[in-house]
Amino acid sequence: MRTLTFGGRNFKEILRDPLNLCFLFGFPIVLLLLLSAIQANIPVSLFEIEQLSPGIAVFGLSFMTLFAATLIAKDRQSSFMHRLYTTPMTPADFILGYTLPLLPIALAEGVVCFAFALILGLKLSINVLLSLIFLLPVALLYIAIGLLCGSVLSDKQVGGICGALLTNLSAWLSGIWFDLDLVGGVFKKIAYALPFVHAVEMERAVLVGNFPAALPHLWWVLGYAAATLIAAILLFLHQMKKQ
């Protein structure tokens, strides 16, 4: 009950910011249009809609990190969190209350992305639906990174670190924009040690119905999501005690 009330507040707080809505729905649509236009003129297999749409769907989820981290950092700075600490809210209420509302938002982002991809020529199949479901662990990963950052950074730092650094990092190391094999070497090794490229390749595999190929990537994503979530919870609790 408390979790739902608090989660409802966070849901409203995020969706009532027009800038957030622009990022959330505008960005994937613009990217899909742009890259499909390029693709129409200079065909690159990487930008075929079956390859492109899972990448954009995953990339769009990096905004979940930004949303979660900004909200938490602001609540900490405005003393709103202090007020809540003096109520019967438990740590679980806080963590679930910040996490749960972002899952439907992430799903909505995925729906918009794939729906637009369908307009651009993606073939409708059950795999599109499954791709949406497989986005959830990826969303959890990005939300957990947001919890982590929001618990330690100020809202200005969040803008820099989650807004600029992380989105870039997850873009460069994801294999969405260029084939990692073209660079190879250490760069590729780093990319495959991080979860972002695994998230993209998992989605690509699911979209073409190749589940055996998707599974190993799923473990990477889930592993990172679980580890980050645990770290975020510990940090959040530490912050709460330190107050």
Binding site: M1, K12, E13, S78
Partner: peptide, 22 residues
């Protein structure tokens, strides 16, 4: 520091506190 939920209306802020107190 004024500890309110900025994106919620005044009524929603009060309602939020009621919800938190069950």
């Amino acid at each position: 520091e004024t500890a309110i939920a900025p994106g919620l209306s005044v009524r929603e802020n009060l309602s939020l506190m009621c919800g938190i107190h069950g």
